[in-house]
Computed example of a mutant assay.
Amino acid sequence: MDSQLEKPRHIVRKFQARPQHEGVGAVVRRSIGRFELRYFDPFLVLDEFSVAAPAGFPDHPHRGFETVTYMLEGAVKHEDFQGHRGLIKAGDLQWMTAGRGIVHSEMPAGPGVSKGLQLWVNLSSKNKMIEPKYQEIQSKDIASTSKNGVTVRVIAGKSMGIQSPVYTCTPTMYLDFTLKPSSHLKQPIPIGWNAFVYTLEGEGIFGLEKSGPVGAHHLLLLGQGDGLEVWNRSNKVLRFVLIGGEPLGEPVAQLGPFVMNTDEEIDQTVEDFQYFVNGFEKARHWRSEAMVGLEA
């Protein structure tokens, strides 16, 4: 954290993520994957979601990328067509590699509102059709440390001398920072990676000390450089995530939850899903418990 940055990154673009409706009755603040910013290589979507039963995200497919679900409040019940199921609670992480195909359901569990972040990370052409897999880490097992008023939870990558055990097919860093009032952070970022900040709570100064403070629910795209400098000049706690990834530099063809490299591959994916082949075989007869309940 005390390392010197030779070329600090500055904010090159900033906008507020406004609420919109997604799924069935759910509300998300989408910052990547909307008309202002369709794609920020290798990131396809960033949603800050807020959902309460009976709303949610019932049975839907994915192919060609990873979904990273990081819970902030409440819990989400996850089920998929391979029989995998579980509860993702506040502070927990699920890193799902959809690869050649997953059909799953994500629904709020328990009373009240469940909130979290979902990030879609693109896969390179050589990884798009790999077998699906999950990495799930409970909150108590996420690598975390504090120093000089700065606390970091290392979802992926490394910070302040600690490393996440998460394996990322597309090289990625994902850091959850909390800065107490009057604290200051210097965080290295690999040169050449694309990186951004998403603010969750409080307000902070990012990149240039003389720049104005930025409040919650803002996406800050960072220019190139070797790291980020942040100051909390307010009298409240500042919380944000810093996410970066190595650009793939490949063409992107997307149709909703399917992300491939060409239109032909998208057509093939639609056909595979329609006819339950090439990774979608188990979708033919599968309904989640949540969907069965909705249909009853």
Score class of each variant (00 low, 15 high):
residue 47 D to Y: 03
residue 192 G to M: 11
residue 211 S to L: 12
residue 14 K to V: 10
residue 47 D to N: 14
residue 126 K to E: 15
residue 283 A to W: 01
residue 136 E to Y: 03
residue 157 G to L: 01
residue 236 K to W: 04
residue 106 E to H: 00
residue 65 F to L: 08
residue 160 M to Y: 02
residue 154 V to Q: 08
residue 282 K to C: 04
residue 199 T to R: 01
residue 251 P to A: 08
residue 29 R to L: 08
residue 228 L to D: 04
residue 157 G to N: 03
residue 68 V to W: 02
residue 103 V to Q: 00
residue 130 I to N: 08
residue 174 Y to H: 13
residue 44 L to T: 03
residue 238 L to K: 01
residue 274 Q to W: 09
residue 128 K to E: 02
residue 210 K to Q: 15
residue 13 R to Q: 15
residue 285 H to S: 10
residue 237 V to N: 08
residue 7 K to A: 13
residue 36 E to T: 13
residue 168 T to Y: 06
residue 122 N to W: 01
residue 121 V to K: 00
residue 104 H to Q: 06
residue 209 E to K: 13
residue 85 R to F: 06
residue 183 S to F: 03
residue 108 P to D: 12
residue 161 G to Q: 04
residue 220 L to H: 03
residue 136 E to L: 04
residue 151 T to K: 15
residue 177 F to K: 12
residue 233 R to G: 07
residue 84 H to W: 09
residue 139 S to V: 05
residue 285 H to V: 13
residue 196 F to L: 11
residue 139 S to N: 09
residue 114 S to W: 01
residue 138 Q to G: 14
residue 33 G to H: 12
residue 110 G to W: 13
residue 131 E to W: 04
residue 293 G to T: 08
residue 203 E to W: 05
residue 283 A to N: 01
residue 266 I to L: 13
residue 225 G to Q: 11
residue 163 Q to V: 14
residue 225 G to Y: 06
residue 92 D to W: 01
residue 278 N to W: 03
residue 216 A to T: 12
residue 19 P to S: 14
residue 26 A to Y: 10
residue 289 E to A: 13
residue 225 G to L: 07
residue 212 G to F: 10
residue 193 W to V: 07
residue 268 Q to W: 02
residue 43 F to Y: 11
residue 26 A to L: 13
residue 130 I to A: 07
residue 140 K to H: 14
residue 161 G to I: 03
residue 180 K to S: 14
residue 87 L to G: 02
residue 262 T to S: 12
residue 118 Q to T: 06
residue 69 T to R: 00
residue 81 F to N: 00
residue 201 E to P: 10
residue 174 Y to K: 03
residue 263 D to V: 15
residue 65 F to P: 01
residue 121 V to M: 06
residue 9 R to Y: 09
residue 250 E to T: 11
residue 177 F to V: 14
residue 259 V to C: 02
residue 4 Q to I: 13
residue 67 T to M: 05
residue 67 T to C: 06
residue 152 V to A: 12
residue 63 R to E: 00
residue 161 G to H: 07
residue 26 A to F: 05
residue 115 K to D: 02
residue 106 E to K: 00
residue 163 Q to C: 10
residue 89 K to L: 07
residue 209 E to R: 09
residue 272 D to M: 02
residue 9 R to S: 10
residue 50 S to Y: 03
residue 14 K to M: 14
residue 77 K to E: 08
residue 21 H to R: 11
residue 181 P to Y: 11
residue 214 V to E: 04
residue 242 L to Y: 05
residue 4 Q to D: 14
residue 180 K to Y: 07
residue 102 I to F: 00
residue 246 E to G: 05
residue 198 Y to F: 15
residue 226 D to E: 08
residue 1 M to F: 09
residue 86 G to K: 01
residue 97 T to G: 02
residue 88 I to D: 00
residue 161 G to N: 07
residue 274 Q to H: 12
residue 168 T to P: 09
residue 209 E to D: 07
